[in-house]
């Protein structure tokens, strides 16, 4: 199973095994990674699963879709590598992915 590393804003790391086909958000929530609330459960309705994708992984995680882009427009502390983790599907190619969590979601 692909491993994903979530780094909290305070530097604390959580390494989680993420099933292929689920989303980067789901893997975090199911392992209670603090900082990813995902209140809406992945319906792209709440923008509380914002992450920064490690620059090395940007190509593999793909582009923001248009709905996601609009939601992120209103999120706090948005950077070029911001994504909603509910919109990133886990695949074998993402084994080793590193994402960081914004301070505001703490």
């Amino acid at each position: 199973m692909p491993k994903i590393t979530y780094i909290e804003h305070n530097g604390k790391e959580h390494v989680v095994e993420a099933p292929v086909g689920q989303t980067v958000m789901e893997a975090a929530v199911k392992h209670a990674v603090p900082g990813i609330d995902a209140d809406c459960g992945g319906a792209c309705a709440c923008a509380t699963c914002h992450v920064y994708v490690d620059p090395e992984w940007l190509a593999k995680t793909g582009e923001q879709n248009s709905m996601e882009q609009s939601m992120l427009d209103f999120a706090n502390e948005v950077e070029d590598n911001s994504r909603l983790s509910c919109q990133i599907k886990v695949s074998e190619a993402l084994d080793g992915l590193v994402v960081r969590l914004p301070k505001s979601q703490h």
Binding site: A47, D73, F74
Partner: peptide, 12 residues
Amino acid sequence: VNRPAEYLGAKM
């Protein structure tokens, strides 16, 4: 409807 920016903007 299919307008996330309007939704989030109004919510704020």
